[in-house]
C-alpha cells in the first residue's frame, strides 16, 4: 500500500533531483533524508500534532471529508509513506544519476519524446536501483514500530503491524508467537537486503 502510493511520486522526485541542479537542492535532499535520522517517535509526534483530531488540519479533514487520520489505517499509511521517503528516493536518485546524460540526448536526436525516453531508456537502465528501492521500502514497512505506535496505536486488524505485534507478544510473555514472527521478519529482511545488493551490483557492473 505504502509502496503503491510512494512509488510514482518518489520516482518523480528522485528523477527530478537527479537531473536538476539549483541552489536549494541540498535543502530538499536533506529533507528527504530527514526521516532516516530522526527518531521515529519524533516524526510520529509531529504527525500527530499536525494531522491529529485536535489540529486545524485534522479538524478540517474530518469536517470536509470525514477522514480521521490519527489512530486509523489511513493515518498509518501516511506516516509510513513519509517515513519511507529516503529508502525509496535515495536509491532511485542514484540510479538515475548513474545514467550518462548523452544517452538521453541520443534518444532525443533519434526522435523519442520525453515519455518514450523515460520508458525505453531511463527506466530500463535505472531498473536495478528502482527494484532495490522497492524491496527495501516494502520490508521496511513491515518492521515499522515507533512512528506507527505514535500515530496508529495498536488496534488489531487496523493499525497493528508485525513489529508491534511482536512487542505485544513479548509483553504478554507469549514468546512462542514472538519467536515465530521475529524469525519471519528476520528472513524477509535478509532476503530483501540480499536482493537489493544483488540488483545494485548488477547496476554497477553494467556501467
Amino acid at each position: 500500500m505504502t509502496l503503491l502510493l510512494l512509488l510514482p511520486a518518489g520516482m518523480w522526485l528522485a528523477r527530478w533531483l537527479a537531473y536538476t541542479h539549483f541552489k536549494g537542492k541540498y535543502l530538499i535532499e536533506a529533507l528527504v533524508v530527514l526521516p532516516l535520522v530522526l527518531p521515529p517517535t519524533v516524526l510520529g509526534y509531529y504527525l500527530l500534532v499536525f494531522v491529529g483530531g485536535a489540529s486545524p488540519l485534522g479538524q478540517w479533514l474530518s469536517q470536509q471529508f470525514g477522514v480521521q487520520l490519527a489512530f486509523h489505517f489511513s493515518g498509518l499509511v501516511l506516516a509510513s509513506v513519509i517515513f519511507n521517503i529516503p529508502f525509496l528516493v535515495q536509491p532511485i536518485q542514484r540510479a538515475f544519476e548513474a545514467i550518462p546524460s548523452h544517452l538521453g540526448e541520443a534518444a532525443a536526436v533519434s526522435g523519442l519524446n520525453a515519455w518514450q525516453i523515460f520508458w525505453r531508456v531511463e527506466l530500463p537502465l535505472a531498473w536495478p536501483g528502482v527494484l532495490s528501492a522497492m524491496v527495501l521500502t516494502f520490508v521496511h514497512t513491515l518492521g515499522e514500530f515507533g512512528v506507527v505506535l505514535m500515530i496508529g496505536g495498536s488496534i488489531p486488524g487496523e493499525t497493528r503491524t508485525l513489529a508491534i505485534s511482536i512487542y505485544d507478544r513479548v509483553q504478554a510473555f507469549d514468546l512462542v508467537s514472538a519467536d515465530r514472527m521475529s524469525l519471519l521478519l528476520l528472513m524477509l529482511s535478509l532476503v530483501a537486503v540480499a536482493v537489493s545488493f544483488f540488483a545494485t551490483a548488477r547496476l554497477g557492473r553494467r556501467q
Binding site: P100, L103, A106, S110, G111, V121, R206
Partner: peptide, 26 residues
C-alpha cells in the same frame, strides 16, 4: 537530424539492432 557522438552514446541495455531501431519508432 542525425547526430553521432564522440563516445557513441549507444543504449547499453539494447543490442545493435535494437539501438538502430530506436530511431524508427514510427
Amino acid at each position: 537530424v542525425g547526430l553521432v557522438f564522440q563516445n557513441y552514446a549507444l543504449m547499453p541495455h539494447m543490442n545493435a539492432t535494437e539501438n538502430v531501431a530506436l530511431a524508427m519508432l514510427h
